[in-house]
Simulated scan of single mutants.
Amino acid sequence: MIVGLSLALGWLGVAQAQVDLSALDKDMAGPRAQVLVLGSVHLSEMAKGFQPESLELVLERLAAFKPEIITIEAISGESCDLMARHPTVYGPERISPYCGKTDEARAATGLDVPAAIAAVSKTLADWPTQPGPAARRHLAALFLAANEPTSALTQWLQLAEAERRVGNGLDDALVVRLDKLATSNSEDSQIAARLAARLGLQRVFPVDDHTGDNAAIPDAEVGAYANAIRQAWKSAEAQTQPLRQHEDELKKNGDLLALYRYINRPDVRRVQADSDFGAAMREASPGQYAQIYVAGWETRNLRMVANIRAAFREQPGARVLSIVGASHKPWFDSLLGQMQGVDIVNVETVLRPPSG
């Protein structure tokens, strides 16, 4: 009996391993979702003198893709609120780099984050085809209270200059914040919000997640953990140095279209992935700290991709643009490509250089 049960369980394991899900959607009804993953540099790290206008060719090509949904590498207001409610799990020092404060927006609107999220949902459900300036100012205030600043900026940028003023939930402090966001060097502001406003979208979707890479490393081992990762990176410097040099040259030249085409090339991303996470898997110091780093990275990507899928859950066949740090792109392409009814769009096709 024991031998027979073991054989049966073994057979089940083999049968499950052979299940191929790739053809489940071959006869699907309706259009397939088109997902474009744009690997990005972090514009906040660009050298002094960076001009957002140099992104215009990139924006033009992304606009031609006509995304209906845009996702960004930022933590949602809901997730920030969740982490803030669990300070023993996510200490303030771990939240502050990713989650801004909503004190000013709460004072202006009277809404905490959960109430503001509910108000945003209700407002968008009844959103008119041609919203007036008052409606946009009000929704911008709600997004700020919901800790969704990039969506607030998306509304702000769709207002005429004369209408970007105090009123309908926006006070002086919030207007100052929106003006500051509009000039901040970040891919969220200078690519996602500007593109969403240009296309007439009402919001962007933050999909980042730092719950999965919140590794529980004892204080006494933090130094060893960091050192193992540094050693892994150092072992691959010969591979990465030429890539960094060429990337720096493109940045200095101000050719942002060429830069984005370069950092999204599969051969570039392959070398970067191997010299970071491949090198970490090969790192052999005691404690397997570098492998813990990789596990956190993969968990983070899995949860981010789940958030992207949720963003177009109710829109089968949507055109989706996901803007994320370039290191994430191979994971996003691979994981999203396994989803039913989803096609991954070739970024090289979208970012073609100007003809002539």
Rank of each mutant, 00 (worst) to 15 (best):
Ala284Lys: 10
Ala279Trp: 04
Ile323Ser: 00
Asn264Asp: 08
Gly325Trp: 04
Phe312Asn: 02
Lys329Trp: 01
Ala306Lys: 08
Pro286Leu: 09
Tyr260Trp: 13
Glu314Thr: 12
Asn301Met: 08
Thr299Arg: 14
Arg319Tyr: 05
Ile323Leu: 11
Ala290Ser: 14
Ala311Lys: 03
Pro286His: 10
Arg303Asp: 11
Ser285His: 08
Asp333Cys: 07
Ala311Asp: 05
Leu336Val: 09
Gly287Asp: 06
Ser275Gln: 08
Asp267Ile: 00
Met339Glu: 15
Pro266Trp: 06
Ala273Asp: 12
His328Glu: 06
Ile263Tyr: 00
Leu321Thr: 00
Ile263Val: 15
Leu336Ser: 08
Trp331Thr: 09
Met339Ile: 04
Asp274Ser: 10
Val271Met: 10
Gly317Arg: 02
Met304Glu: 03
Gly341Lys: 03
Leu321Lys: 02
Phe312Thr: 03
Tyr260Cys: 01
Gly296Met: 07
Ala306Asn: 12
Met281Gln: 12
Ala290Trp: 00
Ala273Trp: 11
Ser334Leu: 12
Ser322Phe: 01
Glu314Asn: 11
Asp276Ala: 13
Arg319Leu: 03
Leu321Tyr: 01
Arg282Asn: 11
Ser334Asp: 13
Met281Phe: 09
Val271Pro: 05
Leu259Met: 11
Tyr262Val: 02
Ala311Gly: 04
Leu335Gln: 13
Gly341Met: 07
Val324Thr: 04
Tyr289Phe: 15
Tyr262Asn: 01
Ser322Ile: 00
Tyr260Asp: 02
Ala310Asp: 12
Met339Gly: 15
Phe277Asp: 03
Pro266Gln: 09
Gln340Trp: 07
Val294Tyr: 06
Tyr262Phe: 15
Ala295Trp: 10
Asp274Thr: 07
Tyr262Lys: 06
Asp274Pro: 00
Ser285Trp: 06
Gly337Ile: 00
Arg270Trp: 07
Ile292Thr: 13
Leu335His: 09
Thr299Glu: 15
Asp343Ala: 12
Ser275Phe: 05
Arg261Lys: 09
Ile263Ala: 01
Gln272Leu: 14
Arg309Gln: 14
Glu314Trp: 07
Arg261Pro: 06
Ala326Cys: 05
Arg303Ser: 10
Ala295Arg: 12
Ser322Lys: 00
Gly337Gln: 03
